[in-house]
Amino acid sequence: MSEVINHNGKIVADQRPADDIAGQSPLHHADLNSLASQGPQTGGVTIQERPLQGLLNLRCNKADKKQVTAVKKLLGVALPCDPLSSASNDDSVIRWLSPDEWLVSVDGAKAFELEAAFQANMPGHYSLVNVSGGYTILEISGDHAVDVIKKSAPIDVHQSSFPNDKVVSTVFAKSGAIIRRIAEDHFELIIRRSFADYLWIWLQDASREYGLVVKR
């Protein structure tokens, strides 16, 4: 392995190969790029994959001020401690998953850098686990994005109860998803690799009556 850092009894390693080896997202086989160029260009629902992002699962103690301070310094964003909230800047998004768990996304190439920085600077008992291979991110937008989510998840997506930047982990069809609202008609879904094909079929089906546009 190119680089393994063992520090405080834990290891992190760069998991990405050199750039000449292309990564394959969980929806690689669906060839969304071809669908984007050859499929319909207008419709009520637009889906875009954000493949190969760096995803890091952070667990730490929000009552530990040193940790909270360190996270802010490391990410440039304060740890969102309110339930179901998220925070972001140009480089990263951090999503509340549970009282001691967050999901951080960064550019895929920057995951290891961030892991190494945590390893060097994060105090106390925490864990930061690279889960980039385990998920993919889909953005779903358009006039009927809300309807597709209503058909799929048992959550209230009305703006009054699901404002922008809110994050929920919930049931999605017969699988699950982490849903974040980016804008009124724009959502982010983070879905597990092994369920990605099922959910992609589901989303196409749920979008059919509104017209589905795939964007690259």
């Binding site: 394959q24 969980p26 086989h29 291979g133 058909k151 069809a173 017969k174 699988s175 690799r193 092994s194 369920f195 094909d197 099922y198 959910l199 079929i201 589901w202 089906d205 749920a206």
Partner: peptide, 18 residues
């Protein structure tokens, strides 16, 4: 509902499925 046919139950795949 839509939980029929290929959507009846999720099929989970590994990266090597193709």
């Amino acid at each position: 509902g839509r939980d029929v046919g290929s959507l009846f139950d999720p099929k989970r795949y590994t990266a090597m499925q193709p």
